[in-house]
Every structure is written in C-alpha cells, then in structure tokens.
Design a protein around this nucleic acid. Structure first.
Length: 519
RNA sequence: CGGAGUGUGGCUCAGUCUGGUAGAGCACCGCGUUCGGGACGCGGGGGUCGCAGGUUCAAAUCCUGCCACUCCGACCA
C-alpha cells in the first residue's frame, strides 16, 4: 500500500516515530525550522490550526469570566530576583537583552559597548513577575478581587534541545493570571481552569487526557500545587498538554500583592497561573496522525471541507469552477459543531491528484472531488480523512448534493467523535493498573530488554498507589525512575476510595500516581 | 558540557578508502500525450561539495584548524 508519508510511525518498534513526526510536520505544511536557533516558522496551515485553538479556547476563557490583556515582552531582570524558587527554575534558560544599539567594528556589527543597558531585560519565559507587579498596584481592596486576566503571547525559554511544536526556544501560548481573596478561591480557580483544559482538549482537540496533580518535584517554580493534563501519544509517551498552578501567596509575598479585607486587615492575595501552548499542535499530530499524514479533528481544521476540482484544460472546466464556488457558498451556510462550515475550493494550478494528496497529508477532514460528472448529475464525491482507505483503495463515497449538505453536520461531528474514541480507547487500553512492585514496573518498561528494538517498544503508562513521599525520599525515587527513563506524571483527579501498598516504599498508599516516559 | 555520528541542488542520498571536468531519484520549469485513484515521454534550470588554511600540475576526495546540525546523556514543564 502506498503511503503519503515516506516514513511509517509503526514499524515493529518505535525508533522511526521521531522521523515520522518530523515528516508530518514538514509534509503537512505545518512548520519548519528557522534560521534562528531552536525557533520555528509556523506556516499558514499550522498557524491556522493555532488560530482555531485560540478561538475555541479563548471563548472558554472568557466564558469563565476572564479578560484578555497584554504585558511587555521584556521584563526587568530585577523582577526575577524577588521569588527565589521561581528564578532558580528559569535562570538557566533565559534570553537576556543587554544592549540597545549596534556598532560597526572592523566591518563587523557588534553590540555597542557604550549602549549597555543599565538594567538588563529578560525576554519573558513566563509573566508571573511582571503581571504580579501590576497586580500589586491594581489591588488595594477586597472589592478589587478577584482579578481574572489572560494574555495570548510568545515566550522564550532557551532549551538545550528543541523539537518543532513540542519544545522550541520561542513558543506561542496563553497564560492566565488571577488573584483572589482566599486560599479556597485560588484553589477553585486552579481546578476550574484545569477542567477547562481537560474539556477543551477532549472535545476540541479530540485528545483524551488524564487530569491530575503533579508530584512535588514536578511543580512549577514557586507554586503550592501544580496540576496538569497528560495525553498519551501513539508511541506510548506522555505529553504534558496543559498546566494550572495554585501559587498560594508565594508571589503575592514576593511582590507585595496585598489588599485590605472587610475587617480592615492588610493581607496577601492568593494567585494562580495556567497555560497551554503551541505544544498542543504536537500533541494533535502524535495523537491523530497516521501513515498518510495528519488527521485534523474538524473543530480545529482551518478548512473542514476542501474541494478539489477535476480540471482538464477543457471548456467544461469553467462549469466545474462555477459549481465549486457555489458549493463553497452553500457549505458556508451549513452549521456544524456550532459554527459555519469552513470550506475551500482549491484552485491552485496543480494536478488534481497532487492536490488531493496534499490535503490528505494536511489532514483536511473531508475532501471533495468535484468533476464534470458531479456537476451534471448533482452529486458529491468525497473521502473522509479519518477513514481514508478501504484495504489498498481510497474509500470514496458519492451522494446527492442535497443529502451531502444535509448530512455534513452529522458527518463532521462523527469524525470529531471518532478521532476522540479511537484515542480514548488507546489511552484506556494502555494504562496498566496491575503492577505492584518497582521491579515488576522496571520489567514492564523493558529495563532488562536486551536489544534496542525491545527497549523502544510501545509501553504506555503504569498507574499505581504510592505513599506520596516527599523531600529526599522523593528525590531518590525520581533518580531511580530516571535510570529507566521514567517520570512521575500526575496523580489523577479521580481516585479510588482505598489503596494498596506504595509501589516505591511498600507503605500504605494514599493516592494513585501515573508513571511513564515523557516528552 | 561528555559520548557517537553527519555536513554534496529544495528533499533523500551516492561519489571520499584508491585525488583527474559534480552525480542519481524525488521536487521544479517547458512541450506533448494523459487526467474520476499518487501518469508517461522528450527537453531544461538549479550545487563556490559546511568554513578557512595547507599539500598537489590537479582536492568533494589527502592533511590541519574551526563551525553547524543530528542522536544518546546532561539539561528541560
């Protein structure tokens, strides 16, 4: 069987998975590496996916009472000195601006030594510090609370090794920042946004996740509690797809965010922050992609229906194009998944066969081939990207134009749901809950695997009770897991009533935790 | 920063050991025949062979230095 991609994601072992991922990013026209180290160029189709993510998530952020705003890209260096854990967490990956002018020296452009900034500026790795500073001025009274804001922005983290969408030195995200009067309100906000992310990921991205609390060692620098949604990729690895942090009063104390309560006392706010990034696109690729390329859930597909006109440099071409334009218009009148259908007539001067496969690779959910016979007969011939093939053949179907238009909302909803169900089944089938000892777990993850093929085979995750150790004991466990290339992912929100013994210590368990390999 | 590897047209790579006019497939351009399941024929454009030195009549090829990238580790939401 011919594949659209030159690389298969599943060839017995998963050593080709990274190649497959890169092939999709390139061949689905999503992004490319840029001349700037570690940063990516997001191409129109990839950016279109991001815009869909923005639109659908932004609506949810606003529906939960938040407002958008914008803070500066540059943050004075001194702002980071205020919260010790925070600076320790980010110090090693900050881009710093030290000069404001270039100078030509011996024909080479260099920063002008006379133009050194009094105080260096950090390109934001996240905005808690500068937003907290604003909060300290905005908030005086309990009547000012809560403050609920969000910003869509780019941030920079100077990572050692980068991968398109998954870890880049610059990435796009949204970061929500809120301030509350009480610990209880802060906790509620943190969990509310975690739930927004879970619902968004599952219904819009069709990407099932496990929402839970991160263990102490994986917390955001300066947070009381960090929660995450974790998605399982097709190689069995975990992708942290979104985080929500209960910052307690750490940042409020460091930045003097205080208010007078109704009793007249001056007290610290409780703050939160939460974010998702362009990494989600990487998650979508590794959740839904197949050997023919990307498969986009209709909710985030920039174009849900693409019409490829069958043109042959003959007089009837004009009729086909007219019919195609009319069809785009008619599709725009159809409402699916709560919005007008996004359709495109691909008039690019390219062979139709080529265009068709380009849209297959890009993951357009429904691809219509519109030829003279369809125009004459009033029919629509189309293929579903989620069920592209029937054996070796491309599975194409045909129906009347009326039936197609009437059935399209249900079709797009079915594709959306089908992609979710497929991923959900994979997630559920690959969380082992029957592993009771560390050695059994090590064996399961192929610690003793003789060859590379066995060592890189699909594993999934282990979910097991643990005693929630802390400090040095947790550190030791982390190191032990690291030797197996494993990490603690999160303690899922849905916990049973009783627990077996701790996988690591043998003591009575207090909750269940997920363990797996991660991106 | 440690270990390994790779730098040759847009992409994937051959050629390097054994120095002798820079190649293939795909992609791209033109013409023709095709076109509703990834077409074919003929013609064509495009590369200072990562960079800088050196050896030589002659360097992609040999020598020296440097740089970049990839993978593994370290690091990392």
């Amino acid at each position: 069987m011919q594949r659209a991609l030159s690389v298969s994601r599943m060839t017995g072992n998963l050593s080709t998975f990274p190649d497959w991922y890169q092939a999709i990013v390139r061949e689905a026209d999503l992004a490319e590496v840029s001349p700037t180290r570690g940063a990516m160029i997001i191409k129109p189709w990839g950016y279109g996916v991001w815009e869909r993510i923005q639109q659908t998530l932004d609506r949810r952020i606003k529906e939960t009472g938040h407002e958008n705003c914008y803070f500066p890209l540059f943050i004075p260096l001194s702002f980071f000195a205020k919260e010790a854990q925070h600076v320790e967490g980010f110090a090693k990956e900050m881009a710093v601006v030290t000069h404001h002018r270039l100078k030509s020296v011996d024909g080479k452009l260099v920063p002008d030594p006379d133009a050194r900034l009094e105080e260096p500026l950090v390109v934001r790795p996240t905005s808690e510090t500068i937003i907290g500073d604003a909060f300290s001025r905005w908030i005086k009274s309990h009547r000012d609370l809560p403050v609920l804001i969000n910003q869509w922005a780019n941030v920079v983290r100077w990572e050692m090794r980068t991968r398109l969408f998954l870890r880049t030195s610059e990435f796009l995200w949204q970061e929500g920042h809120t301030a509350h009067a009480t610990a209880e309100e802060g906790r509620e906000e943190t969990l509310k946004m975690l739930e927004v992310y879970r619902e968004f990921s599952e219904t819009v991205l069709a990407m099932p996740v496990v929402a839970g609390e991160k263990p102490e060692n994986e917390r955001f620098p300066g947070a009381d509690k960090t929660y995450s949604i974790e998605a399982m990729m097709q190689d069995g690895k975990a992708l942290q797809a979104g985080t929500s942090h209960d910052l307690g009063t750490h940042f409020a104390e460091a930045q003097n965010i205080r208010f007078q309560n109704s009793a007249g006392e001056l007290v610290h706010c409780h703050t939160t922050s939460w974010g998702v990034s362009t990494r989600l696109i990487g998650g979508v690729i590794m959740t839904h992609g197949d050997d023919d390329g990307l498969r986009l859930p209709p909710a985030i597909a920039p174009r849900q229906v693409v019409i490829v006109p069958m043109l042959r440099d003959k007089p009837e071409d004009a009729e086909v194009l007219v019919a195609g334009e009319a069809l785009v218009k008619a599709l725009g009148q159809v409402t699916a998944l709560g919005e007008p259908v996004r359709a495109l007539l691909d008039t690019k001067a390219q062979k139709s066969a080529e265009k068709r496969w380009n849209w297959v690779r890009r993951g357009a959910p429904v691809i219509i081939e519109l030829g003279p016979r369809d125009v004459a007969g009033g029919t629509i011939s189309f293929m579903r990207r989620d069920r592209l093939r029937d054996g070796d053949k491309v599975a194409s179907q045909s129906m009347s134009r009326e039936d197609f238009l009437a059935g399209l909302p249900a079709l797009l909803a079915e594709i959306q749901q089908g992609l979710y169900d497929e991923a959900k089944a994979r997630l559920e089938a690959n969380i082992r809950t029957d592993i009771a000892t560390f050695d059994d777990m090590a064996a399961f993850f192929g610690a003793a695997a003789a060859d590379e093929e066995e060592a890189t085979a699909f594993r999934g995750w282990v979910r097991a009770p643990w005693a929630r150790p802390t400090g040095d004991e947790l550190e030791a466990i982390e190191q032990k897991l690291k030797a197996l290339r494993l990490t603690l992912r999160n303690a899922p929100m849905d916990q049973p009533a009783i627990f077996g013994p701790c996988l690591f210590t043998g003591r009575p368990g207090v909750e269940e935790i997920l363990i797996g390999r991660a991106y």
